[in-house]
């Protein structure tokens, strides 16, 4: 399947292992990634807060560029991109008059956004709705047997439910649990699954921001999770990069590995931790590596390549 691939900014900036692991996993899922290389930042809600029309125009441009690729749909790997882009698309699709206004600005570049021009799905949604869980299970080479994984969605991919198309038919706010199970892992339920990582207020209210991250990490620890998995690199920044600070803020030792979704999929599909950039994490995913070594050791005797 060919997809117009939107990696976002952070996956190529402070969490390069996310973009890298997605590229490593794609061929194993028969996904051909056609990168939307001229696209711009989705605005992460901040540009919309500054000027709504500006955010809508920038994203309409990205959608128009995606439509120019031979991809069947557009795929992102960031909850924040999904949420911010869905918000813009909802407005763009609502009014022909408003679209015409936006298209006047895009015209000079020969681009235009038409209603429903692209379907934009996060990798998580694509896994369940396009690839399918049964199909995914068939591709598993190293089932995540015994690995206890806590899902952490990120706000932008679970709320508001109507804008994001979360309903009985597509219960997208339960997909992470389904994917973890399809890969053979054990789902850990804890209080923070659908809560906020705190990243958006890190420069404005560091204390509250780090308390959010720390609390969810501690809750997952208490629920006996081996690791968390996130479909959002911004959540990863607060939960992994800032974890030592978050631990200080809540006054408790924390050592909870946080995996990007493509990394978890990659492990189950047989890739080695190093190919997935797990060494780039601040919190060493020792529990996950130990588990990989144990499984690989018993399965085919190969080394984990660590």
């Amino acid at each position: 399947m060919k997809v117009a691939y939107w990696p976002g900014c952070v996956s190529r900036g402070f969490t390069p292992e996310l973009h890298g692991s997605m590229q490593a996993v794609a061929p194993l899922l028969d996904l051909e990634l056609i990168e939307i290389d001229r696209g711009s930042c989705c605005g992460a809600g901040v540009i919309a807060e500054h000027n709504q029309e500006l955010a809508d125009t920038l994203n309409a441009r990205t959608f128009a560029l995606a439509a120019e690729t031979p991809g069947e749909l557009m795929m992102n790997i960031c909850s924040t991109c999904q949420g911010a882009q869905s918000e813009c698309q909802e407005r763009l699709d609502a009014s022909a008059e408003y679209r015409a206004e936006i298209n006047t600005t895009l015209e000079a570049e020969g681009l235009a956004y038409e209603k429903g021009l692209v379907t934009n799905k996060n990798f998580l949604w694509l896994l369940v709705e396009e690839i399918g869980l049964e199909n995914l299970t068939k591709k598993v080479k190293r089932p995540l047997t015994g690995l206890k994984v806590g899902p952490f969605y990120g706000c932008y991919i679970v709320r508001p439910t109507d804008r994001l198309g979360i309903n009985d038919e597509n219960p997208r706010d339960t997909y992470m649990e389904k994917v973890i199970e399809a890969l053979g892992g054990e789902v850990i339920d804890y209080a923070g699954v659908h809560k906020c990582c705190g990243f958006p207020i890190i420069t404005m209210n560091k204390k509250a921001s780090l308390q959010m991250a720390g609390t969810h990490l501690a809750d997952a620890t208490d629920a006996d999770a081996d690791c968390l998995v996130v479909p959002c690199p911004l959540c990863h920044l607060n939960l992994d990069l800032q974890q030592p600070m978050a631990a200080g803020e809540i006054g408790r030792d924390l050592s909870m590995p946080v995996l990007h979704l493509p990394q978890l999929v990659g492990l189950a599909l047989g890739l080695e931790p190093k190919e997935l950039g797990l060494q780039r994490h601040v919190i060493k995913p020792t529990s996950v590596i130990d588990w990989t070594t144990a499984v690989v050791g018993s399965a085919d005797g190969a080394s984990s390549g660590w």
Binding site: V10, G13, C41, V46, I47, M204
Partner: peptide, 22 residues
């Protein structure tokens, strides 16, 4: 609280780089 400065820094950053330069 750095609220407005953060917003303007973000907007300036995207205008200059297209993608966020953290």
């Amino acid at each position: 609280n750095n609220g407005h400065r953060h917003e303007m820094a973000f907007v300036k950053n995207i205008r200059k780089n297209g993608l966020l330069h953290e």
